[in-house]
Design a protein around this nucleic acid. Sequence first.
DNA 1: TCAACTGTACTATGTGTAATAGTACAGTGC
DNA 2: GCACTGTACTATTACACATAGTACAGTTGA
Lengths: 141, 141
Amino acid sequence: MTGVTNLSIQIVTGDSRPIFKQIVDGIRMEVAKGSLPPGAKLPSVRGLAMQLMINANTVAKAYGELTALGLVEARQGLGLFVTEPRQLLSDEEQQKRLDAAVGAFINEVAYLSYDSEHIIKAVQDALTSLGGKAGKNSDEG
Amino acid sequence: MTGVTNLSIQIVTGDSRPIFKQIVDGIRMEVAKGSLPPGAKLPSVRGLAMQLMINANTVAKAYGELTALGLVEARQGLGLFVTEPRQLLSDEEQQKRLDAAVGAFINEVAYLSYDSEHIIKAVQDALTSLGGKAGKNSDEG
DNA sequence: TCAACTGTACTATGTGTAATAGTACAGTGC
DNA sequence: GCACTGTACTATTACACATAGTACAGTTGA
């Protein structure tokens, strides 16, 4: 044991998202929630593959995505580690991502017969359950 | 002219979503915004295909999705028409869809360094721009 | 009746992605 | 040296997407 964080990721075959994407999203959520703090060591490619009963290349692909996102960092021969929180994207790119996410979200919920306040509250509750980890102020980091 | 509503859908090749999905989302948004009121006639499969410069089968697939969603209704030999607004899904299913949409949304925005209030406001603004069409009360339909 | 339109249902083909399997290599720690 | 780490290949299978062409039943207007 060198401090490897055990992940509680679940792979759902019925999900429309591919397996590697489910891993990326899962780890991204763990980091956002704080379950994976900066410096935490991720399970090895082969270890997580065995745990999830999938191919190692699939995990490697997910880890490649996370590395490209800047969320984790690879140290040759050691493993993957969660990076320190920082400004990963430009303000313009952040705004673009937010707009896209909001647009996609609205497209999904506008179809439902829910009150606007009900939708807002659902989002608020979900954000609150992150434990304020997403409540970072956007001062010059 | 038999009252066919002209659609302002744009197909973006750079989008990660497939073409037929972009059509589904586009029309779903038009209906939510009110640009496509109940009873409105959609462009024909071949007409929209020519307008968007894509294959007719792709439009047919999108129309099939919309029909399966219950958002539009096909009248043999006549065309597709927007259905009357009604409870299309069970309360349980609605809740499930909302949870999934919120979860996917949170997964996208938790990664960004935005204040919770900022995110909430973005969603609120987007909902408001729908013109209250999504503000339907969930009384027994 | 006939022609032109409507959605729908097929077959076939080409392309790209996802996932699997196996192999190989450089770096790290004991 | 050995066991571990991430990474990079090749190859194969399966599936989704988009295209192309054809066909059929129903509707409308001439």
